[in-house]
Amino acid sequence: MQLVVARVGRAHGIKGEVTVEVRTDEPELRLGPGAVLLTDPASAGPLTIETGRVHSGRLLLRFAGVRDRNAAEALRNTLLIAEVDPDQQPEDPDEYYDHQLMDLDVVTKDGTEVGRITEISHLPSQDLFVVERPDGTEVLIPFVEEIVTEIDLEEQRAVIDPPPGLIDDQAEIVSSRDTENASAKDDEDSSGADA
């Protein structure tokens, strides 16, 4: 199984280092020296990591054969892809690989359907589930223990206990905007009819 583990950012310095946007919970395993990664576009790789270090909170990597700023800049926006055994599990039983969470059904504790996980967004502060609702809209669910109370891989579902407004307010905001727009249009139509 192939997983996107990072995206190459800007070149750093003049010796071929690049910043990377990490998209894995295990960067030390997936992005360590010696790791060989496939790429998207495929023409950029495969790439072998020579060195890695953290600088000002950002991970910097240098790849074999990439020796100057121009070569590093040519890799910008390239996705780095690791081959992962689909049966492999994270060491911590409370951690999950992205591929395990994708397409899980999301339901509330009382069984109400929320939608389906279509993406996991890894932010510096926390991870987010991007959940597609049955009506095609999306809602963002923070992947924190207080909200995501259970991940059941056997049943292919994530159970959530959302705080008030996390899900409903997003729909109400859209609904109230539509109502306001319709009301404003009615006012315009009626004022036009008087003239």
Score class of each variant (00 low, 15 high):
Met1Asp: 09
Gln2Trp: 13
Ala6Gln: 04
Arg10Leu: 11
Ala11Asn: 11
Ile14His: 14
Glu17Ser: 15
Val18Gly: 07
Thr19His: 08
Glu21His: 13
Glu21Met: 12
Thr24Ser: 12
Pro27Gln: 11
Pro27Met: 10
Leu31Phe: 12
Gly32His: 08
Ala35Gly: 07
Asp40Cys: 07
Pro46Gln: 03
Thr48Val: 12
Thr48Asn: 00
Ile49Val: 13
Ser56Tyr: 12
Arg62Trp: 00
Phe63Asn: 01
Asp68Ser: 13
Asp68Val: 02
Arg69Glu: 02
Asn77His: 10
Leu80Asp: 01
Ala82Gly: 01
Ala82Gln: 05
Asp85Cys: 08
Gln88Trp: 12
Gln88Phe: 09
Pro90Ser: 09
Pro90Gly: 09
Pro90Gln: 08
Pro93Asn: 08
Asp94Gln: 13
Leu101Val: 09
Leu101Met: 13
Met102Cys: 06
Asp105His: 12
Glu113Pro: 01
Gly115Cys: 07
Arg116Cys: 05
Glu119Asn: 15
Ile120Val: 15
Gln126Arg: 15
Asp127Gln: 14
Phe129Tyr: 14
Pro134Arg: 08
Pro134Val: 08
Glu138Trp: 14
Pro142Gly: 09
Pro142Asn: 09
Val148Ala: 15
Val148Ser: 05
Gln156Cys: 07
Ala158Asn: 02
Val159Lys: 00
Val159His: 05
Pro164Leu: 01
Gly165His: 05
Leu166Asn: 06
Leu166Gly: 01
Asp169Gln: 14
Asp169Met: 11
Arg177Phe: 03
Asp178Ala: 13
Thr179Cys: 00
Asn181Arg: 13
Asp187Ser: 13
Asp187Ile: 10
Asp189Val: 08
Asp189His: 10
Ser191Pro: 02
Ala195Gln: 05
